[in-house]
Amino acid sequence: MKKLFFSSVAMFVAVVLACSCASCKNSAKTSAAEADTIALVGPTFSADSAYAFTAAQCAFGERTMNSRAHDLCGEWIMKKFASYGMTVESQDADVKGWDGTTLHSRNIIARFRPEATTRILLCAHWDSRPWADNDPDSTNWRKPVMAANDGASGVAVMLEIARALQSDTTLKVGVDFVCFDAEDWGTPQWADVADDADTWALGAQHWATHLPEGYEARYGILLDMVGGAGSKFYQEGVSKQYAAEIVNKVWRTAAGIGYGSFFPMKDGGMLTDDHVPVNEKAGIPCIDIVPFFPDCQQSSFGPTWHTVNDTMENIDPNVLKAVGQTVLQVLYSEE
């Protein structure tokens, strides 16, 4: 992941937002004021369990494309979902990387209550960035990233949600967990070519254009880098463009159950991420829960993004808890 961008569409949205500045400010104040405390529903999200799932993925090593660690971790993820009673399948495809490399990708799809016609999509990517190309030390730029946060944390939150759902009989919707592959093979900063947004999110692009006939989801939530220390999740721009109601639902839910400090009702950037093809190619309104560090000189995605320091030492269970409990609350609030 992930690239901040301002396309022509983004510029149009920015102009519209600027033109309605006063009403936007009033609306933001109203939304924050109306986010009253709400009672918890559904199971409790275990931060310790999610932390352990994050560490278990990192124990395989860097899960870079076409590596043994990648393949072994993929098998482990599938078995974990299956152990919680999910219906599990893989979507294998050879896709082309930015440099023409053939990448043997595997999207992992796990379904809770596959018979349910009303479905919610949860997704995250599970591959590791092959190059720490944003590391402050240039000698690390061609080293792989452990991806404890940028990869493992999102899958870990989904696994813990699956564990919490395994014996449930009260949830009124089905849930599809999709672990996207080949997300982080996008053009490296050191490459002598222009970055191309289409070199990112390759697994999500494939999934979005190869959906089972008749597949529908009410909406989707992408979990990207949801465990990093110091993370706050601003409202991402593409999410607001395509799924503003879902953004409002999630952020108001977070505030209502006591996690408003992690989910400030403020705008972040617009990103190239897995939710873009889900919105644009699959036609499923999908939001991105992704951190935004407006004052971080290293990166607006935080100090460990695409560096060799994206390790377990920089994972905070409290952040995993805030995201996981919020998503569970959203799921159990569905009718």
Rank of each mutant, 00 (worst) to 15 (best):
A10C: 11
A14K: 14
C24P: 04
E34C: 04
D36K: 15
L40F: 05
T44A: 04
T44M: 02
T44V: 04
F45W: 01
E62S: 15
T64K: 08
S67T: 15
G74H: 02
M78S: 13
S83M: 09
M86D: 03
S90Y: 05
Q91E: 05
T101I: 03
S105V: 07
N107W: 06
D135E: 07
W141E: 02
A156Y: 00
I161L: 00
R163Q: 05
L165S: 09
D168F: 14
D168T: 09
K172P: 04
V175C: 04
A182D: 13
E183N: 13
E183V: 12
V193G: 01
D195H: 10
W200T: 13
A201L: 06
A204T: 08
W207D: 02
R218P: 15
I221D: 03
V226C: 05
Q235L: 10
G237W: 06
Y242L: 03
I246Y: 07
K249E: 15
V250N: 03
W251M: 10
A255K: 00
Y259M: 01
M265S: 08
G268L: 04
M270D: 01
D273K: 03
G283Q: 08
I287G: 07
Q297R: 13
F301H: 14
T307I: 08
V308W: 13
N309F: 09
N314K: 15
D316L: 13
V323P: 13
V323Y: 10
V330I: 09
L331H: 12
L331C: 15
